[in-house]
């Protein structure tokens, strides 16, 4: 039982870091980024390529830096121009970005599965509650906690972070401070993309690397952000942890229904509380 809870925590932390990037971009740009899963996948592949040559740590750095750059470009070329357009249009445009990134991945790395071993220092198992548990999974929780902590500190004490928090709370704040948003946009979208890329490479030794990993996790990160309330970090945290546990225990207790549970949960939340756990109305 406790091992299940721990596995749920591992999966939930990963989902939260990924969803935090989605929430960040939504908060500032009011863009639900359908390409977010593709960014996660791109991070995993870039990280894999670098890690196999220069080691895992280099892979992590490369995934973060490369994806931050992709995010900056995305904002400058597309999202900035879409500010104020109908949500319909922005959603479809990010869907187009998803298709392009999937093509890039398929062209560069092919369609086969890739496996990445955890670094030697994190390989192996420890005994927890009398059962063996992979060390790498504990690393996932630690890395996620560090990233989430960093983000929370930035949002709470950083000047830019404070503004982002205000903007995601109330869209009109972002609109009123148009000039500042223009300068902050690339930074925030870059950070959101870096979070996607980092969660991709961190997930790589845990889940496998394949060309549909992006779309699989995208759907789940949507479930997280809808349940949590679009644009809310605290809501996304609660939802990610909840979903992690649901997945972990669902697989054990209700194997037939496990894959359906997240969607049932999301439908239920949307029907009874359309604004999500932490969302505000409108």
């Amino acid at each position: 039982m406790l091992i299940n809870a721990l596995n749920g925590l591992v999966y939930g932390s990963l989902l939260f870091v990924l969803s935090a990037g989605l929430v960040l971009v939504y908060g500032l740009r009011r863009v639900v980024n359908f390409a977010h899963g593709a960014l996660y996948m791109l991070g995993a592949y870039i990280g894999w390529s670098v890690a196999t040559l220069y080691g895992f740590a280099a892979g992590v750095v490369a995934a973060g830096v490369a994806l931050a750059a992709v995010g900056v470009v995305l904002d400058l070329v597309l999202f900035r121009r879409l500010a104020g357009r109908q949500p319909l249009i922005t959603v479809i445009v990010t869907f187009g970005v998803l298709l392009i990134l999937e093509d890039v991945v398929r062209s560069v790395w092919g369609t086969g599965n890739r496996a990445l071993d955890p670094p030697a220092a994190l390989d192996g198992v420890v005994e927890i509650f009398g059962a063996p548990f992979p060390v790498y999974r504990l690393f996932i929780v630690a890395a996620s906690a560090a990233m989430a902590g960093g983000l929370a500190a930035w949002l709470r004490w950083g000047r830019t972070g404070l503004f982002v928090r205000a903007a995601s709370h109330d869209a009109s704040v972002a609109a009123m401070c148009g000039v500042r948003t223009a300068a902050i946009g690339p930074m925030v979208v870059g950070l959101g993309a870096a979070f996607a890329g980092l969660s991709g490479i961190v997930a790589a030794p845990f889940l496998s690397i394949h060309p549909s990993m992006g779309s699989e996790i995208l759907v789940l990160s949507f479930v997280v952000s809808v349940i949590g309330g679009l644009g809310s970090f605290a809501g996304a945290f609660v939802a990610a942890m909840l979903l992690g546990q649901v997945q972990s225990f669902g697989t054990v207790l209700l194997p037939e229904l496990a894959a359906l549970l997240p969607f049932l949960l999301m439908a239920g939340v949307l029907i009874f509380r359309p604004q999500g756990i932490a969302g505000t109305k409108g």
């Binding site: 597309l78 121009r81 879409l82 249009i89 479809i92 445009v93 869907f95 187009g96 970005v97 998803l98 298709l99 392009i100 999937e102 093509d103 890039v104 398929r106 062209s107």
Partner: peptide
Amino acid sequence: TSHWLAILGTTLIVVTV
């Protein structure tokens, strides 16, 4: 070309915008 997906994505963006 094997880049059908990328062309599709680009077309979609250009048409939408």
